[in-house]
Each structure stands twice: as structure tokens, then as C-alpha cells.
Amino acid sequence: MSYIIPKESYNGKVLSVDFGKGNNALTVGGGNCLPFLSFEGELPHPPVIAYEIQDTVPEDWPDTVKNIYKDVSANPVTWAQYCQNELKAKALALRLVSTHPDRENRSTEDVAKIIKEVLAAIEVPLIILGSNHIEKDASVLVAAAEAASGSNCIIGKAQEGNYKTIVAAALAHNHKLIAMSELDINLAKQLNILITQMGFAKEKLITDPMCSALGYGLEYTYSVMERIRLAGLLQNDATMQPPILGDVGMYVWKVKETVASESDVPEWGTLEERGIAWEALTATGMLIAGTNLLIMRHPKAVKITEQTINELI
């Protein structure tokens, strides 16, 4: 009996979204088949990994990853340059954690200054993230969008409680936008609809269905992402076709497995390797489920994930 390869026929396509300027601009998405199954479709743009940097010293990161950046993290500009020049980052994600009212509660004027300085110091594309404080992000991301006007950044995250001002700012300053909802395919769809109803093109959206760390709900994120991809590709649901973001680092580098020392939990083995594996395997899981853009922290985990992507394409 001769073997016939069982191919799936897809009706839809993942939208392609570009960000950044000039030779360093990147494009994610654009595929018309399930992740890495290029025997039955086209996957023009491999997933991209952005290095996460912050606007303040990352005191809450565990040593394994904090120490890597200890000489550069006091200033987001030196941190950004280190990632771009030494670690060869293809993209950066600047998280404005210090704007959170429980942290330094930094002002929108400060945000604008930091954004301008970072953008002036780098050539790779930039993702700008708020502190995940619904009310504060509504003003912080507006200031960030304005400061980054013309740089074709990805701004986020717009959520149900604050999307209106953020969408308007991204629209006015021509940025791409991350729409984030909490682990529910229907919420993700609804938010994308609300945003496009404001006149924001779906071709400029990125969906973040909320990431989770290995061992801490990864299977929920995995299945929500797979279902989003299938809805976009098989049912040609236009609201489910933006590229997917996996914001991996922030969920991974706080769970016990990346923090607890070997002397506390000898049966878990060495801490450094464990933390790196935790971030890399979370990222691999997200890639298989359909993630197009990853945000990560540890250079070794990024390298392993890049090698995995290279084997998969």
C-alpha cells in the first residue's frame, strides 16, 4: 500500500505584522498552516524572540537572570544596548514597571524621556509594555506611543478595562498593538472585535491570550492558543488571525522552580540550569501551540529557543 500524506486544507491565514524601521524591521505571522507544518502550507516568517528590559533595576528577578544584567540594568539605555550589541537581540521589549503606583509610580513625562532615549540608542525594533496596572497603563502607554511616534513599535497591553485610550494613541502614532485577555478564547475574540470597531486595523493587532509558566497553567495557555490558531485557519475567523504573543519571561522568573535553591530542594537539581530550562521549555510549548512573538529574559534560554526554532523551520 502506498502512503498518501494526509494534508489539511486551511481556509484562513495568520495576518503578518511588521514592526521596527529599515533593515532591522521584523515581520511575524503570515502563515497559512498550523505551526511548523510547512509540508502543507507556507510559513514565511519564523517566530521572533524579543529580550525583555525594564526601566528600573529588576530587583524582583531571581539572581540567575538578574546577575546577567547587573552591570547594565541601572539604565534602560545601557541595558538595551547590551542586549542589542552583545547578546545580538533581534528585538527588545521595554517594560515600564516603575510606572506602577506600587513601585516608583513614575510619571508619564519620565516615560516619554526614557522611550526617546532608548529609541535613540538602538536600531532593532522595540515593544513597549506598561506595568499591567489597568488605570495607569491607560495614561503611560499613551505617553509612550506619542514619544515613540514614527518608530513603528508594538505597544501594549490593551485590555478590556483600558483599551480605548491606548488604541487611540496607537492609531494616532501609527504603532502596532497588543490586545490582552485572560485565558479565554471568547474574551480574546471579543477584545479584538472591540478594538477593530474603533477603526483600528486587524492587520496591526497582536493577540496575547495570557501566558503561563510551565507547571503553572501552561496547559491552559497551550490549548487557548491552539484553538485560536485553528479558528483562524480552519474556520477563517478573521478576528482570530492576528499573530500570537507569548510573554514568557515574566511568568517564568517568579515560580518556585526558578527561585528555590538546590539546598532547599535537592531533588530538583541545580538552580541555574533549572531556571533556564524552565524558561526555554515554556517557550517551546508556546511555539508549538502557535506563538509568533516571544518575550524572554535569560540569554541561554533565548539561545536554546532560537536553536529549537531553527530546527523546526
Binding site: 510551565l214 507547571g215 501552561l218 496547559e219 537539581g269 541545580t270 533549572r274 530550562a277 524552565w278 521549555l281
Partner: peptide, 24 residues
């Protein structure tokens, strides 16, 4: 099969093989 590696791989396997209909 280092211990750190086992923990990570075991956890991934456990996550993906949980029953989506039964809350963990």
C-alpha cells in the same frame, strides 16, 4: 537525565496530559 532536566520535562508532560475537562 539531570534532576533539573527531569523536573522540567516531567512537568511539561504532566501539563499536556491533564484532562482539559477535569479542573486540575
Amino acid at each position: 537525565i539531570e534532576k533539573w532536566k527531569n523536573l522540567a520535562i516531567f512537568t511539561l508532560r504532566q501539563n499536556l496530559y491533564t484532562d482539559p475537562q477535569v479542573p486540575m
